[in-house]
Amino acid sequence: NKFNKELQWATWEIFNLPNLNEEQVKAFIDSLRDDPSQSANLLAEAKKLNDAQA
């Protein structure tokens, strides 16, 4: 299933962003679980936040 692979990839990527704190990671993962179809958008937002906090 396409969404499942995207969800797994986005989850792994978010867990490995070095500049997000635990609460931010949890919030993004919760959002992914709530709406897996938004995984690409949520990953992009997480990466933006990660870069901003570098």
Rank of each mutant, 00 (worst) to 15 (best):
residue 36 P to D: 03
residue 52 A to N: 07
residue 21 N to L: 11
residue 51 D to N: 10
residue 9 W to K: 10
residue 10 A to N: 03
residue 49 L to M: 11
residue 28 F to H: 01
residue 43 L to A: 04
residue 14 I to T: 02
residue 39 S to M: 11
residue 50 N to K: 01
residue 47 K to P: 00
residue 42 L to W: 08
residue 46 A to F: 03
residue 7 L to R: 01
residue 31 S to D: 06
residue 6 E to M: 08
residue 45 E to T: 12
residue 2 K to N: 15
residue 2 K to A: 15
residue 49 L to K: 04
residue 25 V to E: 01
residue 39 S to Q: 05
residue 24 Q to Y: 02
residue 39 S to W: 15
residue 43 L to T: 05
residue 22 E to T: 10
residue 45 E to Y: 13
residue 4 N to D: 15
residue 40 A to W: 15
residue 40 A to M: 14
residue 9 W to H: 09
residue 49 L to R: 04
residue 19 N to I: 01
residue 51 D to L: 12
residue 27 A to Q: 12
residue 52 A to V: 09
residue 39 S to P: 04
residue 3 F to G: 12
residue 36 P to E: 03
residue 17 L to Y: 04
residue 11 T to G: 03
residue 40 A to Y: 14
residue 5 K to S: 10
residue 10 A to V: 13
residue 22 E to L: 14
residue 40 A to T: 10
residue 1 N to R: 03
residue 51 D to A: 14
residue 20 L to Q: 00
residue 27 A to D: 07
residue 37 S to V: 05
residue 42 L to H: 04
residue 23 E to A: 11
residue 34 D to P: 02
residue 41 N to G: 09
residue 48 K to Y: 08
residue 25 V to M: 06
residue 41 N to Q: 09
residue 2 K to D: 15
residue 5 K to F: 04
residue 31 S to N: 10
residue 51 D to Y: 11
residue 6 E to G: 03
residue 44 A to Y: 12
residue 8 Q to I: 11
residue 20 L to A: 00
residue 13 E to M: 12
residue 8 Q to A: 14
residue 42 L to K: 05
residue 24 Q to N: 02
residue 43 L to D: 00
residue 44 A to V: 08
residue 8 Q to E: 15
residue 21 N to Y: 11
residue 30 D to N: 14
residue 19 N to Q: 04
residue 46 A to P: 00
residue 50 N to F: 02
residue 18 P to A: 07
residue 5 K to G: 09
residue 52 A to M: 13
residue 29 I to F: 05
residue 11 T to I: 15
residue 42 L to V: 14
residue 21 N to P: 02
residue 44 A to D: 08
residue 28 F to R: 00
residue 23 E to I: 12
residue 5 K to E: 15
residue 25 V to A: 08
residue 21 N to K: 11
residue 4 N to V: 07
residue 22 E to G: 11
residue 5 K to N: 12
residue 21 N to R: 13
residue 48 K to N: 09
residue 19 N to Y: 11
residue 23 E to Y: 12
residue 20 L to M: 01
residue 23 E to V: 09
residue 9 W to F: 08
residue 9 W to M: 13
residue 48 K to R: 13
residue 30 D to L: 15
residue 8 Q to R: 05
residue 7 L to Q: 06
residue 52 A to S: 10
residue 44 A to K: 12
residue 49 L to V: 08
residue 12 W to H: 05
residue 50 N to M: 01
residue 44 A to T: 08
residue 10 A to D: 02
residue 53 Q to I: 08
residue 13 E to S: 04
residue 28 F to P: 00
residue 35 D to N: 11
residue 25 V to K: 15
residue 6 E to I: 11
residue 32 L to R: 00
residue 37 S to R: 06
residue 17 L to S: 01
residue 7 L to A: 09
residue 46 A to T: 00
residue 15 F to H: 10
residue 53 Q to R: 05
residue 25 V to S: 04
residue 34 D to F: 12
residue 52 A to L: 13
residue 30 D to E: 09
residue 23 E to F: 13
residue 15 F to A: 10
residue 33 R to M: 15
residue 36 P to L: 05
residue 3 F to Y: 10
residue 40 A to R: 14
residue 6 E to S: 05
residue 46 A to N: 00
residue 10 A to T: 07
residue 36 P to S: 03
residue 17 L to R: 00
residue 45 E to K: 13
residue 46 A to Q: 01
residue 4 N to M: 08
residue 45 E to G: 05
residue 6 E to N: 06
residue 39 S to H: 13
residue 45 E to P: 01
residue 38 Q to H: 06
residue 30 D to V: 13
residue 39 S to E: 03
residue 49 L to T: 06
residue 30 D to R: 14
residue 8 Q to S: 05
residue 47 K to R: 13
residue 52 A to Y: 10
residue 52 A to R: 10
residue 16 N to D: 03
residue 3 F to R: 08
residue 26 K to E: 07
